[in-house]
């Protein structure tokens, strides 16, 4: 099992790599557009700010290769958010927020705190599966996953599984050959490992 991990200076590359290695995968970490074009399957990790991540991808010439990538692509955490069109993150008076990869329609919004609902959403929440998908084989509604995020993807037809955080949090999304996990599968014990294993086994 070969998987290419995009290492672009935005976060959790090492922990994702270790999780994949625990599953016996051969992991290549790269920031080279040529490697991306010929990869068997790609994981786009990421923690941190959307604007910074997009700047990095742009500087490395990775935006178009990722958009055009025809085989399985999995965005993790911020990587899931980057699949969408725009993000309210880094928004201010002069600037309407960050432009993302635009592979799934919709805008990523901030999680507003409420009583007994701190933001960021940080901790273990239960998954509720909306529709079957090979990525979710062996994963049940009620399984726990570890989330750490202050922004949330739009809930729509791409949502495969959601978590309840007072708002519906799209936890796993899919559109064509692109998948996303808002939570950290590499830090979500058994359910997370199963999802990574399923991704490695998707037909490339």
């Amino acid at each position: 099992m070969n998987v290419t991990l995009i290492g672009y200076g935005s976060g959790n590359v090492a922990s994702v790599r270790f999780a994949l290695e625990r599953l016996g995968a051969r992991v290549r970490i790269t920031d080279d557009p040529a490697d991306v074009a010929e990869a068997e399957r790609i994981i786009l990790p990421g923690v941190g700010a959307a604007g910074y991540a997009m700047q990095r991808l742009k500087a490395l010439g990775l935006i178009e290769p990722l958009r055009r990538f025809p085989r399985p692509l999995l965005g993790v955490c911020l990587g899931q958010q980057l699949l969408f069109e725009t993000s309210a993150e880094d928004e201010d008076a002069e600037n309407g927020g960050a432009d993302l990869l635009g592979l799934i329609p919709g805008r990523v919004e901030a999680i507003l705190p409420a009583p007994s609902r701190p933001s960021p959403h940080m901790g273990w929440s239960r998954l509720s599966i909306r529709r079957d998908n090979p990525l979710l084989d062996g994963v049940q509604s009620g399984d726990w996953a570890y989330f750490v995020h202050g922004f949330v993807c739009p809930d729509g037809p791409a949502t495969l599984a959601a978590a309840d955080y007072g708002i519906a949090v799209p936890a796993v999304v899919n559109s064509a050959n692109r998948w996303g996990c808002q939570f950290h599968p590499e830090r979500s014990a058994a359910a997370g490992a199963r999802i990574l294993k399923n991704f490695l086994e998707l037909p490339a």
């Binding site: 976060g11 959790n12 922990s15 923690v47 700010a49 940080m122």
Partner: peptide
């Protein structure tokens, strides 16, 4: 491979470090 970093004394000495870390790494870390 760490998921979060915790700072204590250095943040007291230079609170601006919290802002710099959040801008670069995201506040959730």
């Amino acid at each position: 491979g760490a998921d979060k970093v915790s700072i204590n004394s250095p943040a007291l000495e230079r609170p601006e470090m919290i802002r710099e870390m959040a801008a670069r790494l995201g506040r959730q870390c």
